[in-house]
Nucleic acid binder design. Structure first.
Length: 283
DNA sequence: GCACCTTTGAAGAAT
DNA sequence: ATTCTTCAAAGGTGC
Protein backbone atom coordinates (compact mmCIF):
# COMPACT_ATOMS: atom_id res chain seq x y z
CA UNK A 1 0.00 0.00 0.00
CA UNK A 2 1.01 3.47 -0.51
CA UNK A 3 1.66 4.84 2.84
CA UNK A 4 2.76 8.01 1.27
CA UNK A 5 5.06 8.85 4.06
CA UNK A 6 7.25 6.16 5.33
CA UNK A 7 9.11 5.99 2.13
CA UNK A 8 10.07 8.83 0.10
CA UNK A 9 9.17 8.29 -3.40
CA UNK A 10 12.44 7.41 -4.98
CA UNK A 11 11.74 9.53 -7.89
CA UNK A 12 10.12 12.24 -5.95
CA UNK A 13 10.94 15.64 -7.08
CA UNK A 14 14.33 16.46 -5.98
CA UNK A 15 15.51 19.32 -4.04
CA UNK A 16 12.39 20.08 -2.20
CA UNK A 17 12.85 21.23 1.30
CA UNK A 18 9.89 19.19 2.34
CA UNK A 19 10.39 16.30 0.01
CA UNK A 20 6.96 16.35 -1.32
CA UNK A 21 5.06 16.76 1.84
CA UNK A 22 4.77 19.84 3.89
CA UNK A 23 4.34 17.94 7.03
CA UNK A 24 6.55 19.96 9.20
CA UNK A 25 4.52 23.01 9.16
CA UNK A 26 4.31 25.22 12.11
CA UNK A 27 1.29 25.94 14.08
CA UNK A 28 -1.56 27.29 12.15
CA UNK A 29 -3.80 29.68 13.94
CA UNK A 30 -6.31 29.40 11.19
CA UNK A 31 -7.16 25.88 11.94
CA UNK A 32 -10.14 25.62 14.13
CA UNK A 33 -9.42 22.33 15.71
CA UNK A 34 -5.88 22.59 16.73
CA UNK A 35 -2.68 24.36 16.47
CA UNK A 36 -1.02 22.20 13.96
CA UNK A 37 -1.39 22.37 10.34
CA UNK A 38 -3.02 19.39 8.76
CA UNK A 39 0.06 17.46 8.21
CA UNK A 40 2.22 17.65 11.16
CA UNK A 41 4.94 15.24 11.83
CA UNK A 42 3.25 12.23 10.52
CA UNK A 43 1.17 11.81 7.54
CA UNK A 44 -2.29 10.96 8.48
CA UNK A 45 -2.52 9.12 5.29
CA UNK A 46 -6.12 9.42 4.67
CA UNK A 47 -6.76 6.94 2.07
CA UNK A 48 -9.26 8.32 -0.29
CA UNK A 49 -12.49 7.30 1.15
CA UNK A 50 -13.95 6.97 -2.27
CA UNK A 51 -11.75 3.99 -2.76
CA UNK A 52 -11.37 4.41 -6.42
CA UNK A 53 -8.38 3.67 -8.41
CA UNK A 54 -5.77 6.21 -7.55
CA UNK A 55 -5.72 7.44 -11.05
CA UNK A 56 -9.35 7.68 -11.59
CA UNK A 57 -10.71 11.00 -10.63
CA UNK A 58 -8.28 12.02 -8.04
CA UNK A 59 -10.59 14.71 -7.03
CA UNK A 60 -13.62 13.33 -5.38
CA UNK A 61 -16.28 15.45 -6.82
CA UNK A 62 -18.90 14.29 -4.47
CA UNK A 63 -18.14 16.99 -1.97
CA UNK A 64 -18.92 14.46 0.65
CA UNK A 65 -16.07 15.46 2.79
CA UNK A 66 -17.05 18.97 3.25
CA UNK A 67 -19.52 20.59 5.43
CA UNK A 68 -19.12 24.12 4.36
CA UNK A 69 -22.54 25.43 3.97
CA UNK A 70 -24.91 23.87 1.62
CA UNK A 71 -24.20 21.84 -1.35
CA UNK A 72 -24.94 23.08 -4.72
CA UNK A 73 -26.54 20.25 -6.51
CA UNK A 74 -27.42 22.45 -9.36
CA UNK A 75 -23.81 22.88 -10.09
CA UNK A 76 -22.60 19.75 -11.67
CA UNK A 77 -19.07 19.47 -10.61
CA UNK A 78 -18.25 17.33 -13.52
CA UNK A 79 -18.53 20.18 -15.89
CA UNK A 80 -15.48 21.96 -16.87
CA UNK A 81 -16.70 25.42 -16.44
CA UNK A 82 -14.35 27.00 -18.80
CA UNK A 83 -14.46 24.67 -21.67
CA UNK A 84 -17.79 23.22 -20.94
CA UNK A 85 -16.40 19.79 -21.34
CA UNK A 86 -18.50 17.30 -19.65
CA UNK A 87 -16.66 14.75 -17.72
CA UNK A 88 -17.65 11.24 -18.32
CA UNK A 89 -19.25 9.71 -15.36
CA UNK A 90 -16.26 7.69 -14.61
CA UNK A 91 -17.21 5.54 -11.76
CA UNK A 92 -15.29 2.57 -12.89
CA UNK A 93 -12.33 1.67 -10.87
CA UNK A 94 -10.30 1.25 -13.93
CA UNK A 95 -10.69 3.93 -16.46
CA UNK A 96 -9.12 2.22 -19.33
CA UNK A 97 -9.73 5.15 -21.52
CA UNK A 98 -9.13 8.77 -21.69
CA UNK A 99 -11.95 11.19 -21.80
CA UNK A 100 -11.01 12.44 -25.14
CA UNK A 101 -12.17 15.92 -25.65
CA UNK A 102 -13.97 16.65 -28.84
CA UNK A 103 -11.07 18.44 -30.30
CA UNK A 104 -8.54 15.91 -29.31
CA UNK A 105 -5.17 16.76 -27.98
CA UNK A 106 -5.67 20.40 -28.19
CA UNK A 107 -8.29 20.50 -25.57
CA UNK A 108 -7.54 21.24 -22.04
CA UNK A 109 -9.21 19.04 -19.59
CA UNK A 110 -9.77 20.28 -16.14
CA UNK A 111 -7.26 18.60 -14.00
CA UNK A 112 -4.99 15.70 -14.06
CA UNK A 113 -7.60 14.00 -12.11
CA UNK A 114 -8.78 11.49 -14.57
CA UNK A 115 -6.12 10.52 -16.96
CA UNK A 116 -5.31 6.92 -17.35
CA UNK A 117 -2.76 5.14 -15.45
CA UNK A 118 0.48 5.03 -17.35
CA UNK A 119 0.58 1.35 -17.00
CA UNK A 120 -2.65 1.17 -18.84
CA UNK A 121 -1.49 3.13 -21.74
CA UNK A 122 -0.72 -0.04 -23.48
CA UNK A 123 1.90 -0.75 -25.93
CA UNK A 124 2.44 1.70 -28.62
CA UNK A 125 0.68 4.40 -26.82
CA UNK A 126 3.35 6.78 -25.97
CA UNK A 127 2.76 8.94 -23.05
CA UNK A 128 3.33 12.01 -25.05
CA UNK A 129 0.63 10.97 -27.38
CA UNK A 130 -2.14 11.15 -24.90
CA UNK A 131 -4.21 14.15 -24.38
CA UNK A 132 -3.08 14.59 -20.89
CA UNK A 133 -4.74 17.46 -19.12
CA UNK A 134 -1.36 18.71 -18.23
CA UNK A 135 -0.56 19.03 -21.86
CA UNK A 136 -1.93 22.05 -23.46
CA UNK A 137 -1.35 23.28 -26.91
CA UNK A 138 0.42 26.41 -27.59
CA UNK A 139 -2.36 28.87 -27.47
CA UNK A 140 -0.32 31.81 -28.39
CA UNK A 141 -0.67 32.90 -24.85
CA UNK A 142 2.52 31.40 -23.81
CA UNK A 143 5.63 31.68 -25.71
CA UNK A 144 7.17 28.50 -26.84
CA UNK A 145 10.73 27.84 -26.95
CA UNK A 146 11.79 24.64 -28.37
CA UNK A 147 9.86 22.07 -26.69
CA UNK A 148 11.00 20.27 -23.70
CA UNK A 149 13.68 17.79 -23.94
CA UNK A 150 11.58 14.73 -23.69
CA UNK A 151 9.09 15.55 -26.31
CA UNK A 152 9.67 14.63 -29.83
CA UNK A 153 11.68 17.29 -31.45
CA UNK A 154 9.90 19.30 -34.00
CA UNK A 155 11.56 18.59 -37.25
CA UNK A 156 10.69 21.83 -38.86
CA UNK A 157 10.61 24.79 -36.57
CA UNK A 158 9.17 26.94 -39.26
CA UNK A 159 6.01 25.01 -39.14
CA UNK A 160 5.32 25.75 -35.56
CA UNK A 161 2.39 27.82 -36.56
CA UNK A 162 0.64 24.77 -37.77
CA UNK A 163 1.95 22.19 -35.42
CA UNK A 164 1.51 23.83 -32.12
CA UNK A 165 3.71 22.29 -29.59
CA UNK A 166 1.98 21.40 -26.42
CA UNK A 167 3.07 22.52 -23.04
CA UNK A 168 3.23 20.21 -20.12
CA UNK A 169 1.76 22.00 -17.22
CA UNK A 170 2.75 21.66 -13.66
CA UNK A 171 0.81 19.20 -11.63
CA UNK A 172 -1.67 20.79 -9.37
CA UNK A 173 -0.84 21.12 -5.75
CA UNK A 174 -3.20 20.38 -2.94
CA UNK A 175 -4.68 23.80 -2.79
CA UNK A 176 -5.18 23.96 -6.51
CA UNK A 177 -7.04 20.70 -6.39
CA UNK A 178 -9.13 22.04 -3.60
CA UNK A 179 -9.86 25.16 -5.56
CA UNK A 180 -10.90 23.20 -8.55
CA UNK A 181 -13.33 21.24 -6.56
CA UNK A 182 -14.77 24.00 -4.51
CA UNK A 183 -14.78 26.91 -6.86
CA UNK A 184 -18.19 26.31 -8.30
CA UNK A 185 -19.66 25.93 -4.91
CA UNK A 186 -18.21 29.17 -3.67
CA UNK A 187 -19.36 30.95 -6.75
CA UNK A 188 -22.84 29.69 -6.22
CA UNK A 189 -22.86 30.70 -2.63
CA UNK A 190 -21.33 34.06 -3.01
CA UNK A 191 -22.56 35.08 -6.41
CA UNK A 192 -19.10 36.30 -7.04
CA UNK A 193 -17.35 35.50 -10.20
CA UNK A 194 -14.08 37.22 -10.01
CA UNK A 195 -11.46 34.64 -9.40
CA UNK A 196 -9.30 36.84 -7.29
CA UNK A 197 -12.08 37.25 -4.79
CA UNK A 198 -13.08 33.63 -5.02
CA UNK A 199 -9.56 32.59 -4.39
CA UNK A 200 -9.39 34.69 -1.30
CA UNK A 201 -12.39 32.92 0.05
CA UNK A 202 -11.00 29.60 -0.92
CA UNK A 203 -7.77 30.42 0.76
CA UNK A 204 -9.55 31.09 3.99
CA UNK A 205 -11.62 28.02 3.72
CA UNK A 206 -8.52 26.04 3.04
CA UNK A 207 -7.11 27.16 6.33
CA UNK A 208 -10.34 26.34 8.02
CA UNK A 209 -10.29 22.78 6.84
CA UNK A 210 -9.46 20.11 9.29
CA UNK A 211 -6.17 18.39 8.94
CA UNK A 212 -7.87 15.30 7.70
CA UNK A 213 -9.66 17.21 5.04
CA UNK A 214 -6.52 18.90 3.92
CA UNK A 215 -4.62 15.66 4.04
CA UNK A 216 -6.94 14.27 1.47
CA UNK A 217 -5.86 16.93 -0.96
CA UNK A 218 -2.23 16.60 -0.11
CA UNK A 219 -2.52 12.96 -0.87
CA UNK A 220 -4.24 13.64 -4.15
CA UNK A 221 -1.60 16.13 -5.06
CA UNK A 222 1.09 13.68 -4.23
CA UNK A 223 -0.45 11.13 -6.51
CA UNK A 224 -0.74 13.69 -9.22
CA UNK A 225 2.91 14.45 -8.92
CA UNK A 226 3.79 10.82 -9.00
CA UNK A 227 1.73 10.25 -12.06
CA UNK A 228 3.11 13.33 -13.68
CA UNK A 229 6.58 12.02 -13.11
CA UNK A 230 5.69 8.72 -14.60
CA UNK A 231 4.19 10.30 -17.64
CA UNK A 232 6.89 12.87 -18.14
CA UNK A 233 10.03 11.55 -16.53
CA UNK A 234 12.27 14.30 -17.69
CA UNK A 235 9.90 17.14 -17.22
CA UNK A 236 10.90 19.94 -14.97
CA UNK A 237 8.95 22.89 -13.74
CA UNK A 238 11.75 24.89 -15.11
CA UNK A 239 10.59 23.96 -18.58
CA UNK A 240 7.74 26.38 -18.21
CA UNK A 241 9.73 29.16 -16.73
CA UNK A 242 9.55 32.29 -18.69
CA UNK A 243 6.62 31.22 -20.73
CA UNK A 244 4.40 33.67 -19.09
CA UNK A 245 5.14 37.15 -20.04
CA UNK A 246 5.47 39.16 -16.96
CA UNK A 247 5.41 42.83 -16.96
CA UNK A 248 8.26 44.48 -15.24
CA UNK A 249 7.55 43.80 -11.72
CA UNK A 250 8.56 45.90 -8.84
CA UNK A 251 10.53 44.64 -6.00
CA UNK A 252 8.42 42.79 -3.56
CA UNK A 253 9.91 44.33 -0.55
CA UNK A 254 6.66 45.11 1.20
CA UNK A 255 4.69 42.09 0.42
CA UNK A 256 7.08 39.73 2.02
CA UNK A 257 7.71 41.69 5.08
CA UNK A 258 4.28 41.10 6.43
CA UNK A 259 4.48 37.40 6.15
CA UNK A 260 2.19 37.30 3.20
CA UNK A 261 3.38 37.14 -0.28
CA UNK A 262 1.95 38.18 -3.49
CA UNK A 263 3.28 37.41 -6.84
CA UNK A 264 3.28 41.02 -7.75
CA UNK A 265 3.84 42.67 -4.47
CA UNK A 266 0.38 44.04 -4.36
CA UNK A 267 -1.09 41.96 -1.70
CA UNK A 268 -4.25 43.45 -0.45
CA UNK A 269 -5.78 42.90 2.87
CA UNK A 270 -8.38 40.28 3.06
CA UNK A 271 -11.09 42.82 3.47
CA UNK A 272 -11.16 42.69 -0.26
CA UNK A 273 -13.65 39.94 0.22
CA UNK A 274 -16.81 41.09 1.84
CA UNK A 275 -17.19 39.51 5.21
CA UNK A 276 -20.60 38.28 4.32
CA UNK A 277 -19.05 35.93 1.86
CA UNK A 278 -16.68 34.44 4.31
CA UNK A 279 -17.43 31.27 6.15
CA UNK A 280 -18.33 31.66 9.74
CA UNK A 281 -15.35 29.78 10.95
CA UNK A 282 -12.98 32.37 9.71
CA UNK A 283 -14.83 35.38 10.82
C1' DG B 1 -5.38 40.12 -26.79
C1' DC B 2 -3.24 39.47 -22.79
C1' DA B 3 -1.33 40.63 -18.20
C1' DC B 4 -3.07 41.35 -13.73
C1' DC B 5 -5.30 39.97 -9.56
C1' DT B 6 -5.60 36.46 -5.68
C1' DT B 7 -4.78 32.19 -3.18
C1' DT B 8 -1.36 27.96 -1.54
C1' DG B 9 2.00 24.67 -2.61
C1' DA B 10 5.88 22.71 -5.22
C1' DA B 11 10.05 23.23 -7.40
C1' DG B 12 13.89 25.56 -9.18
C1' DA B 13 17.04 29.48 -8.82
C1' DA B 14 19.54 32.51 -6.19
C1' DT B 15 21.94 33.86 -2.11
C1' DA C 1 20.60 25.82 4.23
C1' DT C 2 17.70 29.40 3.54
C1' DT C 3 15.25 32.73 0.80
C1' DC C 4 13.28 34.21 -3.37
C1' DT C 5 10.83 33.47 -7.73
C1' DT C 6 7.86 31.16 -10.87
C1' DC C 7 3.90 28.62 -12.14
C1' DA C 8 0.03 25.84 -11.61
C1' DA C 9 -6.35 27.40 -11.98
C1' DA C 10 -9.74 30.72 -12.95
C1' DG C 11 -12.42 34.54 -14.76
C1' DG C 12 -13.43 39.41 -14.35
C1' DT C 13 -10.92 43.66 -15.14
C1' DG C 14 -8.25 47.04 -17.41
C1' DC C 15 -4.64 48.46 -20.40
Amino acid sequence: MDDGMKHQDPGMYKGSAYSGYPFLMLSDPYLPNGSMSPLSNKVPVVQPSHGVHPLTPLIPYSNDHFSHGSHSPHLPADINQKQGVHRPSQTSDIPGFYPLPPSGVGQITPSMGWFPHPLMLGSGMHTTGIPHPAIVPHSGKQEMEHYDRNMKPQPEPKREKEAKKPTIKKPLNAFMLYMKEMRAKVIAECTLKESAAINQILGRRWHALSREEQAKYYELARKERQLHMQLYPGWSARDNYGKKKRRTREKQQDSNSGGKRSAFGTYKEKDAVPAQFLPMEVL
